[in-house]
Design a protein around this nucleic acid. Structure first.
Length: 345
DNA sequence: ATAATAGTTTTCCACCACAG
DNA sequence: CTGTGGTGGAAAACTATTAT
């Protein structure tokens, strides 16, 4: 009964494809179904560690009557594809699990992990937690973007009383890190660079992609990136999730690199349908085949010679490299400086 | 220069009002 | 009742200031 060794604990995570476990020693009267689990002071680092399905900004209105609220900044919710693991390795989906950032404190907490879930550990419930003594929560994500949580308790799991010292996660003081394979204390960067070195040392590789777990030949521009991901064991995906060890893998040749694929949700591009947008702001393709184009390199502060449009960056001090502390000022968008219209951002 | 002390900020825990 | 969105505060961790 119970989990008594660290290897048993690691194996349960290994079985679901997790390679790094984040560990929090839970507070004795906190961290339950009612008092959300505090993980960090900001979402930022957590989002790298735990792939997020969807982030939503909540309307800032909710708290304007409260004295302290810095009106205007919305509470951010990051939805997770979360599962509870039991000690036998069974998984139970908790579909409503999310990270909520309360910026004004600041605090990021895990919440909603009971709702709609078939089974959850009794020790996470406020009314029962006292009986379990010390509790330790392990959370980890696999490369398919699934996140698993396993709760140990002093009462049921011998491991709790002899839990090893943990390497700091770098995300917050409460979260430690435990590697599932190899050295328990190597940092994610070390693991990743280790794997990259091994891949480089192996010489040239054929262009492939990882499709549903198997490597298939691939021809095309994205080949370099796909191949690298595949060799790292990452399936080709268009998810906006980090690829491995909490890092997004990028490869490039030439001198341009895209860190993200943006689709504007503000301005005209957000308001209009795709067709309307292209008809209004695009132009005819040169081939005269009826196509419409909206393309081109746009640089901040000076209009593009071909389109007249201009990229605007605000909320970033170009001299100091510091971002504005007012989040709604931080912004990248395209405008038409002649007409003063806001095309997208 | 170093140690002692005071002041400030950050981190984390405890608890609660209230809506559904 | 449960879960969300909040508050307050202790303690730790920094910084600044003053005494030795």
């Amino acid at each position: 009964m119970g989990i008594s060794t660290i290897n048993h604990f690691r194996n349960l995570f290994n079985d679901v494809g997790v390679d790094r476990i984040f560990v929090k020693i839970l507070a004795s009267k906190q961290d339950n179904d009612k008092n959300q689990i505090v993980l960090a002071s900001q979402l930022e680092g957590l989002i790298n560690a735990f792939p997020v399905r969807e982030t939503r900004l909540r309307e800032p209105s909710s708290s304007t009557k409260k004295r302290k609220s810095a009106a205007g900044r919305p509470i951010t919710e990051a939805h997770l594809n979360y599962f509870w693991l039991d000690q036998n390795g069974n998984r139970y989906h908790a579909p409503d699990t999310k990270l909520i950032e309360y910026f004004q404190y600041p605090e990021a907490r895990l919440s909603g992990f009971i709702k709609g879930c078939e089974w959850a550990p009794a020790a996470i419930r406020r009314t029962k937690q006292a009986a379990f003594g010390k509790r330790i929560l392990g959370i980890g994500a696999n490369r398919a973007g699934e996140i698993f949580g396993l709760l140990l308790s002093e009462r049921d799991d011998r491991l709790v009383s002899e839990f090893p010292e943990l390497a700091p996660s770098g995300i917050s003081g409460v979260l430690g890190i435990l590697n599932v394979t190899g050295d328990t204390t190597a940092t994610p960067q070390e693991q990743l660079t280790g794997e990259l070195r091994a891949i480089v040392a192996a010489g040239w590789h054929a262009s492939v992609r990882n499709k549903g777990g198997t490597l298939v030949p691939f021809k095309g521009n994205q080949g370099a990136g796909y191949t690298l991901e595949a060799l790292l064991g990452v399936e080709t995906n268009a998810l906006k999730e980090p690829d491995a060890y909490g890092h997004e893998i990028k490869s490039f040749r030439g001198n341009k690199i895209s860190l993200m694929t943006p689709t504007a949700d503000m301005g005209a591009e957000g308001d209009l349908t795709f067709r309307d947008f292209m008809m209004t702001y695009g132009w005819d393709g040169k081939k005269d085949d009826g196509s419409r184009r909206f393309t081109g390199v746009h640089r901040a502060g000076k209009p593009s010679t071909s389109t007249r449009y201009q990229l605007e960056v605000s909320g970033l001090d170009l001299k100091s490299g510091e971002f504005s502390d007012k989040p709604d000022e931080i912004f990248v968008g395209i405008t038409d400086p002649e007409l003063g219209t806001f095309i997208g951002g």
